[in-house]
């Protein structure tokens, strides 16, 4: 009863919503880069949002299901194929034992999530299943997945009656998350604690210029290429806690945005903060893609976030009810 890795991808890791309570010891929360896509993938298979999933980047892995499973793929579209037939992201799919999943090409986004109904049977580290690669703990043996790894599934499910002679069956209904239909360039931000360290010109440039995601971008952070925003301030900032989405101004006038595996503390001016509801679209940006920042405030940011979470909750309830009805008639 497991999922076996036939061929490893460039960075396949077990992730969940993150590890909390340990930032005070320098242990960052980590977790999925695109928390929204993780929630969508889990909702589609009727899992609670905190269930463990596999985060996949491109080149993606090839996997074999050694047991029947109900799965869903959300986030980036890497053109999934099951047993050499194309399947779609954002649908629940019933797969039979022996089915092989591979990904053909990257057409949208950078982080793809594979959720399995009832999740994987793994030991948490400090309350979370997220893989902490530096610490060598959490997830699957504290490391990215490798060829021949076999990831145990938590629950057995028999789909012979439901699937009949099919080796897999895609459910008709799908999630239609708005922010995933297209990937807008606009990223909304709130002013950061050191926003006023920027000169008037730099503030204007920050809002009007476009910024390009540099190739030096990873799960820790995105470096941006753009106009020099050097602040007039000479003061050296003492380190304080930073967050996912904090936009820091480096001494060379360039920007960096902290992502899932960011360090807990930072000492660069925090000029802005990407709003929570836009973390997902930011996480799906590739190197060389451009982004535009637009200013908003905490109140508006919270309203969009709450709406997003409410939609996810409804999706989760709808999928749970429907799946229960179909799988256990």
């Amino acid at each position: 009863m497991s999922l076996s890795i036939l061929k490893a991808g460039i960075l396949d890791t077990i992730q969940d919503q993150g590890r909390f309570g340990f930032r005070q010891f320098g242990i960052n929360p980590g977790g999925a880069m695109d928390q929204y896509a993780l929630q969508v993938a889990n909702a589609l298979v009727g899992n609670p949002f905190e269930e463990t999933v596999i985060e996949i980047h491109f080149p993606a892995p090839e996997l074999e299901f050694l047991a029947d499973a109900v799965i869903a793929i959300a986030g980036a579209d890497f053109t999934p194929f099951i047993n050499n037939r194309k399947t779609d992201i954002l649908h629940p799919v019933a797969v039979r034992q022996g089915a092989r999943l591979r990904f053909e090409k990257s057409v949208m986004g950078t982080c793809c999530y594979l959720a399995v109904r009832s999740g994987f049977d793994l030991q948490p580290w400090l309350g979370s299943h997220s893989t902490h690669i530096k610490a060598g703990a959490g997830g699957f043996k504290g490391r990215p997945l490798k060829k021949d790894d076999s990831i145990p599934l938590k629950k057995n499910i028999n789909l012979s009656e439901f699937a009949g002679d099919n080796d897999f069956l895609q459910f008709h209904w799908k999630a239609a998350p708005q922010s995933m239909d297209h990937l807008p360039e606009n990223i909304s931000v709130m002013r950061g604690p050191e926003w006023d360290w920027l000169t008037q010109d730099a503030k204007k440039n920050f809002i009007h210029d476009e910024f390009i995601i540099s190739s030096q971008s990873d799960r820790m952070g995105y470096r941006l290429h753009g106009n020099d925003l050097s602040s007039g301030v000479e003061e050296e900032l003492i380190s304080s806690a930073v967050s996912f989405g904090s936009i820091q101004l480096l001494p060379n006038g360039q920007l960096t945005i902290l992502m899932a595996d960011h360090q807990t503390m930072g000492g660069y001016p925090r000029i802005a903060q990407v709003i929570a509801a836009h973390h997902s679209r930011l996480a799906q940006k590739k190197p060389k893609e451009k982004i535009h920042f637009q200013l908003t405030d905490n109140k508006s940011a919270e309203i969009i976030y709450l709406k997003q979470q409410e939609d996810l909750r409804l999706l989760q309830i709808a999928c749970s009810l429907k799946l229960d009805e179909i799988l256990y008639p």
Binding site: F20, Q24, S239, A241, K299, Y305, Q309
Partner: peptide, 26 residues
């Protein structure tokens, strides 16, 4: 969680949990 730094303390919170009693406020 709360995270102490040199001269500051950052408190992280769950927006949904806080909103249960926050009313109209953020």
């Amino acid at each position: 969680e709360s995270v102490p730094a040199y001269s500051s303390l950052t408190v992280y919170f769950d927006i949904l949990a806080v909103k249960k009693h926050a009313g109209e406020e953020t």
